[in-house]
């Protein structure tokens, strides 16, 4: 007979081991792990935690234009009420919403159309994709100057084309007109970022199993049915992330309005970000600008919550050592 040391033990045989270890001992046990994240953590702390704290602090004080902190005066919530009650704030808020939603919706739709059209294999597809992506890669400053030149009131090519085609009698001054300025800037923004949506959705399309399409074809589904019942459900996750990222990017965009119009004419192309910048660095109203920033911050946190949720889905199920 061979060595039999372990016979079937009852289910309660070894339940005398310790309960879940407490947090301190777990931290101590994992202390080596922290070394890996430490450099990143320090950088992030210095450049993130401190500014956040600082912005919140500033928002409760009136601080002199030269930012001499020792001269600041506690004013409670008055910066907040100042910002929230100003008519410019309301106007800029509406513009921010229009800017963010219009840019996001149109970029997404153009990107979706492009992704679907590019999904089929054809000669030159790679070249086409690369060309469409270039605006996304170049700097927003470059894009702003190029479009500023295109929109130029006297020598702009867009104005000249619309006259040549008989749309208008004389060139429109796109950027110096309260009615057209925001829409003109949104076009530039879409030009710059629709290909981001395109790339994301193209990657998403690749996850749609071919078999499903064939099955749907056998079941008699036409092109639209296949898109709606097969492709689209598979794109939901990617679409969510894409739309969120676009919204965040648009909400935060600064360069295009700042470089092209500086928020003008008469604040008509200001969005929150450019407005805050102007309050702070243009008029040195640090307190109001900070309060403004905190409000923006809260809005972003809400978006951020959904962003991280969308991004980390499925991550926790993964096992590690």
């Amino acid at each position: 007979m061979s060595t039999i040391t372990g016979q079937a033990a009852g289910p309660s045989a070894a339940r005398a081991v310790q309960k879940k270890p407490n947090i301190v001992s777990r931290i101590i046990k994992h202390r080596a792990d922290y070394l890996y994240v430490l450099p990143a953590l320090i950088v992030m702390l210095v450049v993130i935690a401190f500014p956040i704290y600082y912005t919140i602090e500033l928002s409760f004080f009136r601080t002199p234009p030269n930012l001499q902190m020792k001269d600041k005066i506690w004013t409670g919530l008055s910066n907040y009420s100042l910002v929230l009650n100003s008519s410019v704030f309301h106007e800029v808020t509406i513009q921010t919403i229009i800017w963010t939603l219009a840019s996001t919706v149109f970029s997404f739709l153009l990107g979706l159309g492009a992704a679907l059209s590019l999904h089929r294999e054809f000669v030159g597809r790679g070249v086409l994709r690369a060309l469409l992506l270039i605006p996304y890669v170049i700097s927003a400053v470059a894009a702003s100057y190029v479009w500023k030149w295109l929109y130029h009131s006297d020598f702009g090519v867009i104005g000249a084309i619309s006259v040549a085609l008989g749309f208008t009698d004389e060139p429109i001054n796109f950027l110096d007109n309260r009615q057209t300025v925001l829409a003109s800037l949104i076009v530039v923004n879409i030009w710059k970022e629709f290909s981001f949506a395109m790339v994301m959705l193209m990657a998403g399309l690749q996850t749609v199993p071919d078999q499903l399409h064939r099955a749907a074809m056998v079941d008699g589904a036409n092109t639209w049915d296949r898109f709606w019942h097969v492709t689209f459900p598979h794109l939901k996750g990617v679409s969510m992330v894409t739309i969120l990222l676009l919204m965040v990017a648009n909400f935060n965009s600064f360069i295009i309005p700042f470089v092209m119009t500086g928020g003008g004419p008469a604040d008509a192309s200001h969005i929150w970000i450019t407005h805050i910048y102007q309050l702070a660095f243009g008029r040195q109203q640090w307190g109001a600008a900070s309060a403004y920033a905190v409000i923006l911050f809260v809005v972003m946190m809400t978006l951020g919550y959904f962003y991280v949720k969308a991004l980390t889905r499925g991550d926790e199920t993964r096992q590690g050592a």
């Binding site: 039999i4 040391t5 016979q7 079937a8 033990a9 045989a13």
Partner: peptide, 26 residues
Amino acid sequence: DKMAVMSGGLLQQYDTPANVFANPVN
């Protein structure tokens, strides 16, 4: 030469395949 049959983290039987086959413990 020998097989250790496990289930639910417990060792059920450890013996030669012939013995495990002929005399399963549970």
